[in-house]
Write a protein that binds this DNA or RNA. Structure first.
Length: 324
DNA sequence: CCTATTTGACCAAG
DNA sequence: CTTGGTCAAATAGG
């Protein structure tokens, strides 16, 4: 219908290069995490070095992400509110469900909730609406993750973040349920990053992880809250969860596995740019520590505004900042 | 006591 | 209607 994905050759090439760099950076990141001390032993504190490396790599990755994001958006100015298409997972899905296309204002019905549940307190739905409206705009990308036979599960490749599971659903045509995770600091720092993990039907060792949005929280910083327990730094990365079948255990492994970026095949002449790169800065919260990683070129302060629609705001000024 | 997970129900969109 | 995504009460675990 609409040829919105028309990119010039220059842009394609640029995108390709950026993606390559992005991919490489991520791989490097994973590598650094796996092998913190590659060469001979150093007398310097390994932790500090590792941390510095991590920060550096993080900056690189972030840079790539932003570049990709900018390029993608600037290249298709006509496409503003259209949700980003995602790489179609190669799952053996007979009745493939197409991702929701660009449906503009499909529901005239105003948001009114009687809350079917017996419990009251339905005003929190507002957040849900606000969230659901934006959620389509959130950058979305997926990765294929394969569990490593040995261990290596400790390697939180991309997942330095702490996730909290908030749901699990059986997907039609999929043998295994899909798990939904959100950032642990969602309520505290308004970090709307989420991810879903779907175990592949075919390969029991492959999980498809789809991320939505990027972290705006500052959980990477080792900061302990002044209140409550000062030292409660524990990793909730892997939960044993030996509640039932071994399959659950396998599922729990999904959180930490070898990340393998896909859709970024460098040999494809067709070059199908699968999805939108990450990074999405919702601006700083007035919180005590509004420390957001990476310098925010754009700062949307409209993250919380029930009545105002931010749609046009943020692509517009973004566009401006491109020519900055 | 706290926080994280589980799990059925709810909701929006196709 | 179905289906994917989310919420929230109940539960598990420290």
């Amino acid at each position: 219908m609409e040829g919105r994905d028309m990119l010039s050759w220059e842009q394609k090439t640029l995108l390709s290069e950026l993606i390559n760099g992005f991919d490489a950076a991520k791989k490097l990141q994973a590598r650094l995490r796996e092998a913190p001390s590659p060469s001979s032993s150093f007398s310097s504190p390994a932790t500090a070095v590792a941390e510095t490396n991590e920060i550096l790599v993080k900056q690189i990755v972030s840079s790539y992400e932003r570049s990709l994001l900018l390029l993608n958006w600037s290249s298709s100015p006509s496409v503003q509110l259209i949700p980003t298409p995602v790489t179609v997972v190669p799952v053996a899905n007979p009745g493939s469900v197409p991702e929701s296309p660009a449906s503009i204002n499909g529901s005239p019905r105003s948001e009114e909730f009687a809350d079917g549940g017996g419990s009251s307190e339905s005003h929190h739905r507002q957040d849900y609406i606000f969230n659901s409206k934006k959620r389509k705009m959130l950058p979305k990308w997926s990765e294929k993750v394969r569990i490593s036979p040995e261990r290596g599960l400790e390697g939180p490749q991309d997942d330095v973040f702490s996730w909290r599971k908030y749901g699990q659903k059986d997907i039609l045509g999929a043998k295994f349920p899909r798990s939904y995770y959100r950032c642990t600091h969602r309520s505290t720092q308004n970090c709307w990053a989420t991810k879903q993990v779907q175990r592949s039907d075919g390969d029991a060792t492959v999980f498809e992880v789809t991320y939505r949005g990027t972290h705006t929280c500052s959980q990477a910083i080792t900061r302990t809250p002044p209140l409550a327990s000062p030292e409660k730094r524990q990793d909730t990365r892997v939960k044993p969860a030996i509640t039932q079948k071994p399959k659950d255990i396998l599922e729990s492994l999904k959180s930490n596995l070898t990340v393998r970026t896909d859709g970024l095949d460098d040999g494809k002449d067709v070059f199908s740019f699968p999805d939108t790169p990450p990074f999405y800065n919702y601006g700083t919260i007035n919180g005590e520590f509004g420390h957001v990683e990476s310098s925010p070129i754009f700062d949307v302060v409209d993250w919380f505004n029930p009545t105002v629609e931010i749609d046009t705001t943020f692509p517009a000024f973004l566009h401006e900042s491109i020519y900055y």
